[in-house]
Every structure is written in structure tokens, then in C-alpha cells.
Measured scan of single mutants.
Amino acid sequence: MFKRLMMVALLVIAPLSAATAADQTNPYKLMDEAAQKTFDRLKNEQPQIRANPDYLRTIVDQELLPYVQVKYAGALVLGQYYKSATPAQREAYFAAFREYLKQAYGQALAMYHGQTYQIAPEQPLGDKTIVPIRVTIIDPNGRPPVRLDFQWRKNSQTGNWQAYDMIAEGVSMITTKQNEWGTLLRTKGIDGLTAQLKSISQQKITLEEKK
């Protein structure tokens, strides 16, 4: 169930391209415009997507990853294993993690069937560096609404905000991946996880038929 919630949630996290980005210092504006741009692209490019579902990787690479804190999220997933990894191991892992996100997020976007969304009203940021933004996803086919909290983090150097995690039903996506990959990290280390991520990233994206 959580895996499905995570995939549905990713439908609204794909941010804007650099040329049309919203105010990078306001995570609420980023979330709002990102959702609108993403849904528009999914709707307008269905012919290309249906002809070649792996085209979704391109959308992810162009529109999402430049505005997601990939390395920060990847380091959180590694936890204690990050500090013990060599620079070469980290570089290989982050490259594999990025390719994994292209496949995983692309597969999530393949679930698009006309969903709509509501974003919580903007709250004062103050001096906060981590801000959760509640998004409610509404399914046109009558499924119950899904309420999610996207975690946005302020870059201490640039002042810009980027998304790095999502919490559904009190469970963090980062925590879920830590639990899912924990045994592999304990037995085969970061190299074993890197190899698995490379394998997963090679899987073809498949479209979910409308139910």
C-alpha cells in the first residue's frame, strides 16, 4: 500500500525546468507551479508516452532531478554507511541512485490517469530550513484521497528550496528505503546496493492501464 502511495505522490513532485522555475526561495510556489507544469506535460505528451513509456525517463531527467536534492536524499538512505564509504564508492552510488530515480519516478508518472491535487495554504517560513507541505491527491475514479507531506529543505548556501522526502501515513519514503535496503547494505555494503540500483534502473517502464 505504501509503495502505491509513494508512486501516486511522485506525480506531483516533478519540479519546473530552470527556464520557467518559480521563486526558488518559496517552496509553496515551487510546489504549486511544479504540480501544474507536471500535470500539463503528462496530459499533453501522452502520444509520446504511450508510444514509448521510457520517454518518461527524459521527462524526469529534464523536469524533476535538477530540483530534487538527489545527493542529500541518497546520503540519508545510506545512513551510517555513508561515512564509511570511499569517495569513489559515493560517486558510483550517487550515479546509480540518480539512474534509479529516473526509472522509479518514471514508473510513478506512468500512473497518471487524470488525477488532480490540492496544496495546503502557504504558511510563514520564518527562519525554518525544513518545511512540510501537505498535498491532497484526488483520484477521478473514486479512490479515497491521498494526503501527503512533502519535505522541502532550504539550501544554506543559495537560499533555494528543494524537495527531498515524502511522508505518507506517518511513514517517510527515506525511512522506507532504509528499511528495504538495510539488509543488503549490511551483507554486501554500498557496492552491493550500487549494483542492485544499476540493475533496477535497467527495467523498462510500463504503463498502468486505467481501472
Rank of each mutant, 00 (worst) to 15 (best):
M1F: 14
M1E: 00
F2Q: 02
F2E: 11
L5K: 02
M7C: 14
L11F: 00
L11C: 14
V12L: 03
P15F: 04
A18Q: 07
A19N: 10
T20G: 13
A21N: 02
A21M: 02
A22P: 01
A22V: 07
D23C: 13
D23R: 00
Q24N: 11
T25H: 04
N26L: 05
P27S: 07
Y28E: 02
L30P: 07
L30I: 02
L30H: 06
M31L: 02
D32E: 06
D32P: 03
A34Q: 15
A34W: 12
Q36G: 10
Q36E: 05
K37V: 04
T38L: 08
T38D: 00
F39Y: 08
R41D: 09
R41C: 04
L42F: 06
K43G: 05
E45L: 07
Q46H: 12
I49N: 05
N52E: 13
N52T: 04
P53N: 00
D54T: 00
L56A: 06
L56Q: 06
L56S: 07
R57C: 06
T58R: 09
I59T: 03
V60N: 13
Q62P: 06
E63H: 02
L64W: 12
L64S: 06
L65P: 07
P66T: 06
V68H: 02
V68L: 04
V68Q: 00
Q69A: 10
Q69H: 02
V70D: 14
K71M: 07
K71C: 01
Y72A: 05
Y72H: 05
A75S: 10
A75M: 05
L78T: 08
G79I: 15
Q80V: 09
Q80E: 02
Q80T: 07
Y81L: 04
Y81I: 04
K83C: 00
S84A: 02
T86L: 03
R90Y: 01
A92I: 15
Y93S: 14
F94Q: 08
A95I: 06
A96F: 10
E99L: 06
E99K: 14
Y100K: 14
L101S: 11
L101D: 15
K102E: 15
K102D: 01
Q103G: 07
A104C: 15
Q107I: 02
A108P: 14
A110M: 02
A110F: 02
A110P: 02
A110N: 05
M111W: 06
Y112D: 15
Y112C: 07
Q115T: 11
T116H: 05
Q118Y: 02
Q118G: 11
Q118A: 14
I119W: 10
I119C: 02
A120H: 06
A120S: 09
P121Y: 02
P121T: 10
E122M: 00
Q123Y: 14
P124L: 09
L125G: 07
G126F: 15
G126R: 07
G126V: 07
D127V: 01
K128H: 00
K128P: 07
T129Q: 10
I130Y: 15
V131H: 14
V131F: 11
P132F: 03
R134W: 12
V135P: 06
V135E: 14
I137T: 15
I138N: 00
I138G: 13
D139W: 14
P140N: 00
G142Y: 05
P145C: 14
R147Y: 00
L148I: 04
L148C: 15
D149L: 12
F150K: 14
F150W: 12
Q151I: 15
W152H: 01
W152K: 02
R153G: 10
Q157C: 05
Q157P: 09
G159E: 13
N160S: 09
W161V: 10
Q162D: 02
A163H: 02
Y164W: 12
M166G: 06
G170N: 07
M173L: 05
M173Q: 10
M173E: 04
I174P: 15
I174K: 09
T175D: 13
K177F: 15
Q178E: 15
N179D: 09
N179T: 07
W181T: 15
R186V: 12
T187A: 04
T187E: 01
T187Q: 13
G189Y: 09
I190G: 11
D191S: 11
D191C: 06
T194M: 02
T194K: 11
T194H: 05
A195S: 03
A195N: 02
L197M: 01
Q202V: 05
Q203A: 11
Q203E: 06
Q203I: 00
K204S: 12
K204I: 08
K204H: 15
E208K: 10
E209S: 09
E209F: 14
K211H: 08
